[in-house]
């Protein structure tokens, strides 16, 4: 074992068994497939039991209900979103997945008549409490939408857009932020020679990565992705999925997806939602992704993930 990486390791001793957990960013020497690594990560907290539970989630909805007028679209959802993990929300159409994810940065506020009951905690603070700066919440909890929605401006201006909202910044510094954001969204090499060109000329997949760059340029803490690949071809989808694995080194990510293979491939934990008889969406199961897809507790989850309906 290389000495350099040993300092990044954390040894947890529980029940007489020593589990060596790999620190972040020192994965290369671990000679295992990505899937095995994911398993190792997702199994560790289960073995560590209460030690993992003590870690406060980055975000947490508490008995969250969302109403459109009198209609309850989402009922009593308690969903933890862990930092530096990917949380997937799956379920059949109309079960309130999008409504739920859009409540995490209060995008639902823009719909007339929409209101929330319960809490959404971000670092222990309820974002629906009175006196909360919604604009700041949306900066801290960024969002990527179903269809790429770059502004009809240049590539550079798209990425710089959010940063410029916070006042004038020296050109060199802004250049740095734009480059870093584009590098982290794996778009830099494709666009570095045409930063002044219109973002509308990019392909759909590139536009979506540009939207991701635009979101991370303002240094959010959580990134919400509402079916980010539904308008993209498989190659572009793969790129976004790889990118998500990179991004989770730094951010908590929540993704809504209709594609169960995608949820299984990319996420660490999965929430399964269903529509109740009164048409309100509820979360019927939440667990490690691996468990949801191999031995779910709820029969409906099993039917859904095995493709028997939905």
């Amino acid at each position: 074992m290389p000495i350099a990486s040993s300092s990044a390791r954390v040894a947890i001793s529980l029940h007489g068994v020593t589990i060596v957990q790999q620190g972040k960013g020192v994965l290369p020497d671990m000679n295992t497939s990505p899937l095995a690594r994911e398993n190792a990560q997702s199994h560790a907290p289960a073995t560590a039991g209460e030690a993992a539970a003590a870690v406060m989630p980055k975000m947490q909805t508490e008995s969250l209900s969302i109403y459109y007028g009198n209609f309850r679209a989402v009922a009593d959802v308690t969903l933890p979103v862990r930092d530096r993990k990917i949380t997937a929300i799956i379920g059949p159409s109309g079960c309130g997945k999008s409504t739920l994810i859009r409540s995490l940065n209060r995008m639902n506020d823009l719909i007339a008549g929409a209101h929330a009951g319960g809490k959404v905690m971000l670092d222990g603070e309820d974002i629906y409490a009175s006196g909360i700066d919604v604009v700041d919440i949306r900066r801290r909890v960024g969002m990527v939408f179903q269809r790429p929605n770059p502004f009809p401006k240049s590539i550079y201006d798209n990425v710089a857009f959010g940063v410029r909202l916070y006042g004038r910044i020296p050109k060199a510094e802004l250049d740095d932020i734009v480059e870093t954001s584009l590098r982290r969204s794996a778009l830099w090499d494709e666009v570095k020679d045409k930063l002044k060109q219109s973002a509308m000329a990019l392909s759909g997949g590139q536009q979506q990565r540009l939207c991701i760059a635009r979101a991370i340029a303002v240094e959010p803490e959580v990134i919400l992705m509402d079916e980010p690949c539904s308008a993209l071809d498989p190659v572009a989808t793969l790129k976004i999925e790889e990118l998500m694995q990179e991004l989770k080194q730094d951010y908590a990510i929540v993704i809504v997806t209709h594609n169960m293979q995608q949820a299984a491939r990319v996420s660490d934990t999965t929430a399964m939602m269903m529509m109740r008889a009164d048409r309100a969406g509820e979360m019927i199961e939440f667990d490690e992704t691996q468990i949801i897809f191999t031995k779910p507790r709820d029969k409906r989850t099993e039917d859904y993930v095995s493709g028997r309906f939905g």
Partner: peptide
Amino acid sequence: EGAFGIGC
């Protein structure tokens, strides 16, 4: 949405 989502 893009504008509000980024903190406008």
